[in-house]
Amino acid sequence: MIRVAVVVFAILAVLPLLGLPDYFMHLGIATMLIALSCTGWALMGRFGLVSFGHGAFIGIAAYTMALLWNDVGLSPWIGLPAGVSLAVAAAALLAYPCFRLRVVGHYFALVTLAAGEIVRILIVALRDYTGGSLGMTPRLAPDHAVAAMQFGKQGFWWIALIAWGIGIFAWWRIDRSMSARALSAIGEDEDAAAAIGIRVTREKMAITLLSAGLAALGGALGAQYRLYLNPETLAGIGVSLQIVFGALAGGMYSMLGPTVGAAFTTALEEVLRVAFGTAFIGAAPLIYGILLVLFIQFLPRGIVGWFDRRR
């Protein structure tokens, strides 16, 4: 699988040099960044740690980065790591008591859902700083585009590609480490895992923080790329579910599954948007929802999982 990933990476790295149309470049960047978030989510999701709150981490990272730039004048090159760090800290704050006190399964999913909603509502409520539901735009700096991380499509393509590569690399390393074995054991039976000497809380914390960090990186870069932040698209249930669906559609048990899923859901949304435009408002989410349900019913291991099984 890693060979496939390296080949994909190499092909993607030279694509921007071919002078492809802007529209294609835009979809590619958006897909890579969502793919990173989905990969991050699946990193913990595949071990039975199902979070419905990854939107919270994305929201924290994106808004920290944008507010530092707009209000303090700190470049996103510093603001992005700061935002991601803050998101990881929030994840630790949420996950540590969850894991220590054995909040698992449905309960864990719904606690994380609550966290996502808290961040979304906070962003809306702090509208004096964040612009509330209207969203906010990072200040444009045409003279210092590089320092402000405001590149054109080509530059951002490579940034997105590198970020995505980090996610895939993290997955590959984890898969080859003892942690993956430990986490599979924990996913099967926590008590048994603890009994054979696995430090359950520690392993779960590590994967959760990594997962939250990668998801936050993808989301915050997406906001920086679009130069527009909105609580509905960066925090809360909507974005959390979008990430989960992407991972699930592609297959959360294989390295490239979440990426394939992100490409699939992005393409689907785009096709529906173009097909219906503003003619039948509602037809797009309707078809999207039906396809998702069918997918879950007939391809429970996702697109990649289906191919894997047939091989």
């Binding site: 669906f245 037809a283 309707l286 999207y288 929802g289």
Partner: peptide
């Protein structure tokens, strides 16, 4: 859970239509 999550979009979309 996620299958019923997909139904969210179906119902919202139907209502909008």
């Amino acid at each position: 859970v996620l299958a019923t999550g997909g139904v969210i979009f179906v119902l919202q979309g139907s209502a909008m239509l």
